[in-house]
C-alpha cells in the first residue's frame, strides 16, 4: 500500500462518532504498526463495530480521523484492504461461486487458487446460494472473500462468529499467516482466548472510550492479582482501595482479590498485615485484564 512507510499501518486519531445524543465512539486514538495482529475488545455496544465502520469509510466520524500509512482512506486502497463485517453482507440470491467471481472481476490481486483452497478449508459448498448457507458458512464465505485478495490490511469484525471450534482455529491460523506475510490484521472478538492467542497488541473499548491499550505480553506482565484467603470473611483493609496500583478490588466470602498494576509491594504488605491464611501473587490473563478494564467481576 502506498503512503509513508514509517507511518503506522492504521492510525486512528481522536475518533469520535455520535448518533444523535448517543456517543458511540468517544475520542479514541490507536496506532497500529504494520504487520501486527491487533485485537479490539469490548462488551456489546462498546463501539468496536462503529470504530471499524469509521475506519472503513462506511460511517463518517463526528470528529477525528483515520489514516492508513499516513494517508486518508481512498477507494483505490481497497485493492489491498479487506473488511469483513460482523454480519456478512452477502447477497442471498448469489451463490458462493458468484461471490468469488464478482471478487475476481473487482480486485486485481484476487487469487483464484487461494480462494479455492480456503473454500476447501472451510468445507464450503460454493454452489449454494448465500441465503441458503448457515450463519457459520456465511462467515466462512466472508472470510474466503476477505483473504482471497491477499490484502495488506485486514479488518475483521467478529471473524469467528458462528464457526465451529475447528474453523475458529483456522481463522486464527489465517490471521497469523497473513501477519507473517507482512499484512496488518485488526480484529474484534468476544472470545478473549482467541485474542490472547493471536494478537500482539490489544485495545479495550468500554462505552465508546478507550480504557486500555498495549502489547499483550506487557499488559500481562504489568497486571497481577494478589489473592488472599482469611479464616473468616475477608476484612476491609484500610487504605487498600486508595492505593494507586490497585485497579480493582473483589471480596467474596473469605476470599480477597486485588487486581494490581506493577509489583504491588505495598498492597501485599497491607494484606499480610490483616493476617490472612494465605497470600498468592498471580499473573493476570487477558480475560482478567479485560474484566477489570470494563469494571466487571
Amino acid at each position: 500500500m502506498a503512503g509513508h512507510p514509517e507511518a503506522p499501518a492504521i492510525e486512528i486519531a481522536a475518533l469520535t462518532k455520535r448518533y444523535g445524543a448517543t456517543t458511540a465512539v468517544d475520542d479514541v486514538s490507536i496506532a497500529i504498526p504494520e504487520g501486527t495482529i491487533f485485537g479490539l475488545l469490548g462488551t456489546n455496544g462498546a463501539g468496536k463495530t462503529t470504530t471499524f465502520k469509521c475506519a472503513m469509510g462506511l460511517a463518517r466520524p463526528s470528529a477525528g480521523s483515520v489514516r492508513f500509512h499516513g494517508q486518508a482512506l481512498q477507494p483505490k486502497m481497497f485493492e489491498s484492504m479487506s473488511y469483513m463485517p460482523e454480519r456478512p453482507a452477502l447477497y442471498d440470491w448469489m451463490t458462493g461461486m458468484q461471490h468469488l467471481e464478482a471478487a475476481r472481476r473487482t480486485f486485481a490481486q484476487y487469487d483464484r487458487a487461494r480462494a479455492r483452497e480456503l473454500a476447501d478449508l472451510f468445507a464450503l459448498d460454493l454452489r449454494k446460494r448465500a441465503g441458503k448457507l448457515s450463519k457459520g458458512q456465511q462467515s466462512a464465505l466472508g472470510l474466503v472473500l476477505a483473504f482471497s485478495i491477499r490484502p495488506q490490511v485486514l479488518v475483521l469484525d467478529e471473524p469467528s462468529s458462528g464457526l465451529d471450534p475447528l474453523h475458529q482455529r483456522h481463522v486464527l491460523d489465517l490471521m497469523i499467516d497473513a501477519a507473517a506475510g507482512g499484512a496488518t490484521v485488526v480484529f474484534s472478538s468476544h472470545q478473549i482466548g482467541q485474542v490472547e492467542r493471536a494478537a500482539e497488541r490489544v485495545a479495550i473499548l468500554h462505552r465508546g472510550k478507550l480504557v486500555l491499550e498495549g502489547v499483550v505480553e506487557d499488559l500481562k506482565a504489568q497486571e497481577k492479582i494478589v489473592e488472599a484467603t482469611f479464616e473468616t470473611d475477608a476484612p476491609t483493609i484500610a487504605g487498600l482501595e486508595a492505593n494507586a496500583s490497585v485497579r480493582h478490588l473483589m471480596r467474596q466470602g473469605r476470599l480477597l482479590r486485588a487486581y494490581i498494576r506493577g509489583t504491588g509491594d505495598g498492597v501485599v504488605a497491607a494484606i499480610q498485615a490483616a493476617a490472612p491464611t494465605s497470600v498468592r501473587i498471580l499473573d493476570q490473563n487477558l480475560e482478567d485484564i479485560f474484566l477489570v478494564a470494563v469494571g466487571g467481576n
Binding site: 472503513m56 469509510g57 462506511l58 477507494p75 486502497m77 481497497f78 473488511y83 463485517p85 453482507a89
Partner: peptide
C-alpha cells in the same frame, strides 16, 4: 439493506 459493507469496500468511489 445490508450490503453497503460489501458495496463500499471495493476499489471504486460511491458515485462510481
Amino acid at each position: 439493506n445490508g450490503h453497503l459493507e460489501i458495496a463500499w469496500t471495493r476499489p471504486a468511489s460511491r458515485v462510481g
